[in-house]
């Protein structure tokens, strides 16, 4: 029997396979297919202090080996979550992590204070990297001072595990990672989507209402993998790897590059069963390589 348990700061995951924010709803959508407790964790849909309608339709475009989205953090706000969604999901036997967003630092703080009160949510993913909102979001995550400021202020009001989600749309992602580590981040997750664009040549119009959007899927995997490897070598805090993971081999590559936990994202749109297959695939890999603990994979890249 192989041991799939991993720890991220104080947070224990029964296995390293989690679902990425924006691709698993609030875990109850996954529960329509299988028990969310079969996975290590669920990074819930990006939540803001107040209701947000998100961007206008069309919000997606299929691209080679991936897709663009421009959802723009549509959600009903934290109070709706606490009253209507949290009671339904709080007893799922898995780590539930709220993805926290704001247009201003005050928003981030007010939202995080509310999340801090939820007993069954032991971590936040501080999103400073959403490319699809006009204010806040990625604006904080693309400079060291911006990333430091949000991380420092949220750290003051949040005493559980804080994972900061990083944008790949920067010159050197390791600088941002080190900056948030310096302000008390317990972990970093990367990468969020790449700012990108699609055009319909026939109509000569952009395919997204917002003109640009975020690229995800296997198209970004090699770049995400490189960034995870760079960051894992630059910081001491654990890393959550994200970016185009479609199967167990992809997940293992991210772990070898240094990710303690991985998030499956866009792959869920193509097949919601993929995360379970990845858990099985990691077990199988460990057996083939005579590993007892999944920790033997993490950072195990041979140079």
């Amino acid at each position: 029997m192989v041991n799939l348990k991993v720890k991220l700061h104080n947070l224990e995951f029964k296995n390293p396979v989690t679902l990425a924010s924006g691709t698993c709803g609030f875990a109850r959508e996954i529960a329509e297919f299988y028990d969310p407790g079969l996975l290590g964790g669920h990074f819930l849909k990006g939540t803001t202090l107040k209701n947000r309608d998100g961007n206008a339709y069309p919000r997606m475009a299929e691209t080679p080996s991936g897709m663009l989205n421009a959802v723009g953090l549509q959600n009903k706000g934290i109070d709706y979550f606490i009253d209507n969604i949290y009671p339904e999901i709080k007893d799922y036997d898995t780590q539930l992590i709220i993805n926290v967003n704001g247009s201003t630092v005050e928003d981030y703080i007010a939202l995080t204070e509310k999340v801090n009160e939820l007993d069954n949510i032991q971590a936040i993913e501080l999103n400073i990297s959403c490319p699809n909102v006009k204010e806040g979001g990625m604006a904080f995550g693309v400079t060291c001072p911006g990333a430091e400021m949000v991380t420092r202020e949220v750290r003051k009001v949040y005493n559980k595990t804080m994972i900061v989600k990083l944008s790949p749309n920067v010159t050197d992602i390791t600088e941002i990672a080190k900056a948030v580590e310096g302000q008390g981040a317990d972990s970093v997750s990367l990468v969020n989507t790449f700012l990108a664009m699609a055009i319909d040549a026939e109509s000569r119009t952009p395919k997204l209402s917002t003109i640009t959007g975020g690229l995800s899927g296997p198209a970004i995997k090699p770049i995400a993998l490189r960034m995870v490897w760079q960051v894992a070598n630059a910081v001491k805090i654990p890393v959550v790897g994200i970016g185009g993971i479609m199967n167990a081999a992809d997940a293992i590559e991210f772990m070898l590059a240094g990710a303690s936990v991985i998030q499956v994202g866009t792959a869920i749109f193509t097949d919601p069963m993929i995360p379970l297959k990845i858990v099985e695939g990691i077990e199988d890999y460990m057996k083939r390589h005579n590993m007892q603990s999944v920790n033997e994979i993490i950072g195990g890249l041979q140079l």
């Binding site: 297919f33 997606m60 959802v71 866009t266």
Partner: peptide, 22 residues
């Protein structure tokens, strides 16, 4: 039949404006 990715309510791409919001 709006453009959609997931089909089960997690990607929020196929939205239609309604009296209840998107």
């Amino acid at each position: 039949e709006n453009l959609m990715a997931c089909g089960f309510g997690v990607c929020l791409c196929c939205i239609e404006p309604t009296n209840q919001g998107n």
